[in-house]
Simulated scan of single mutants.
Amino acid sequence: MKIQKSFSGQEQHTVYVVPTPIGNLEDITFRALKTLKDVSVIAAEDTRNTKKLLHYFDIKTPLVSYHEHNKESRGKQLMNRLDNGESIAVVSDAGMPGISDPGFELVQQAIETDYPVVVLPGANAALCALVGSGLSADEFLFYGFLPRKKKEKEAELERLKRLNGTLLLYESPYRIKDTLKMVHAHLGNRQISIARELTKKYEEYIRGHVAELIDWADKTELKGEFCLVIEGTSNESAPKNKLWWSSFSIVEHVTHYMRQADLSSKEAIKLVAADRQMSKRDVYQAYHIDQKE
């Protein structure tokens, strides 16, 4: 068991996790600015991006890079600096470090070495999107980015669809259309909100059902990073005791997956079998053979 007294008057050997604005620079806190000025060094996901922030607020603290590709070697160097009594601030390009951004490993190393880790409150895109969605925030799961590979993404959506809480996902403009179609195929036509360009001049919320947002995405030039907020299975507005595919025949059910998620019949049959708790052979029979008789 470890007990940390964060504010015992000892500021050396400390890792400060400092959120940075996700768009509007005025969202940074006075405490964050003071911390960035007072620490020995700032470990940044992208030093070029962080330099702009520091220049805006006239902060001269030295910068080093700390990202996915150098976290092991740089982490050792940063731990050596902590050993020598220095203090470190960790920042990502935007938002809270460690949340779909670098930071976790350094925090873990500091804790294991009994160095204090002080986390400052601040900007976070997922929570802004959740509160602004109008969907329940009583219970929610932040997932971050879904896997890029189709099979892995399908498997995760199949797992997530059974959860009661509201789901929070991040997505890029290059994959948002395909992700919406796969959400529709695996989770059904649930209520959903998309938040984009949060806190910036072009901030936008798009709220509706998944099918409506698929249509919106097909007609819209998609820019910026997106946060998807999707209702869970226990939401009061969801139909009670009724599966989304219950009105479909087996053939319609298979066809739905093929069209909405761009799956082969073999892949769709596998999902239908899982939905209906049937054998793949029986679903294959109904789709390929019985409908032709």
Rank of each mutant, 00 (worst) to 15 (best):
K200R: 12
V41K: 07
L180T: 00
A268E: 07
K177Q: 15
D38N: 14
A32P: 01
I194L: 14
S92V: 04
L141S: 09
S100A: 15
N24W: 11
T166V: 05
M1E: 11
N189F: 10
K240R: 14
H13D: 13
T50I: 11
T47W: 09
V229P: 00
I99D: 06
F7T: 12
T35Y: 02
C128H: 08
E68T: 07
Y115K: 14
R162S: 03
G165P: 09
L120K: 00
G98M: 06
T113V: 02
D38C: 11
L271P: 00
T50H: 11
H13S: 13
L120D: 03
L78N: 10
P19G: 09
D138H: 14
K153F: 00
F248A: 07
A110K: 05
S100R: 06
E293A: 15
R190H: 07
K5G: 08
K270D: 07
F7E: 12
V41A: 07
K201R: 08
M258S: 02
S264W: 02
R196C: 05
L82P: 01
R276L: 15
N235M: 05
K151S: 14
L160P: 01
Y16G: 04
S65Y: 14
L141K: 00
R31N: 04
L63K: 10
E86W: 07
S136N: 10
Y170M: 01
D138V: 01
K280P: 05
G95R: 07
E11R: 05
K149Y: 04
S133P: 03
H186N: 06
A43C: 10
S172G: 15
R159N: 11
I269R: 00
L78R: 07
T199V: 13
S246V: 08
Q10W: 01
V183A: 00
A43M: 06
V254A: 10
H67N: 12
F142C: 05
T50G: 04
E231F: 01
L130W: 03
L243W: 03
V229R: 02
N124T: 15
D282P: 04
F7W: 12
G9A: 13
Q260A: 12
R281T: 09
S65I: 08
A268Y: 02
Q291V: 07
D46A: 08
D27A: 09
S92M: 05
E11V: 06
D282V: 07
K280Q: 14
G9K: 14
N24E: 07
Q10S: 11
F57Q: 04
F226Y: 15
F104C: 04
T50L: 05
K270E: 05
G23H: 06
N24K: 12
K149T: 09
K223G: 09
R31V: 09
E293G: 15
K71F: 02
S237F: 15
V229G: 03
K181L: 10
M182R: 08
P21Y: 10
S6I: 10
E139H: 14
G95W: 02
R31I: 08
T220Q: 13
G85S: 04
V107W: 09
I230K: 00
E158P: 00
T179G: 06
K201S: 01
P21V: 06
S264R: 12
D215R: 13
T113A: 15
L135Y: 08
R276P: 05
W245Q: 00
N80T: 09
F30A: 04
A274I: 14
G9W: 10
K266R: 11
L271C: 10
L106G: 01
A195F: 11
Q191D: 06
E267W: 08
K37P: 06
D138E: 15
I230F: 08
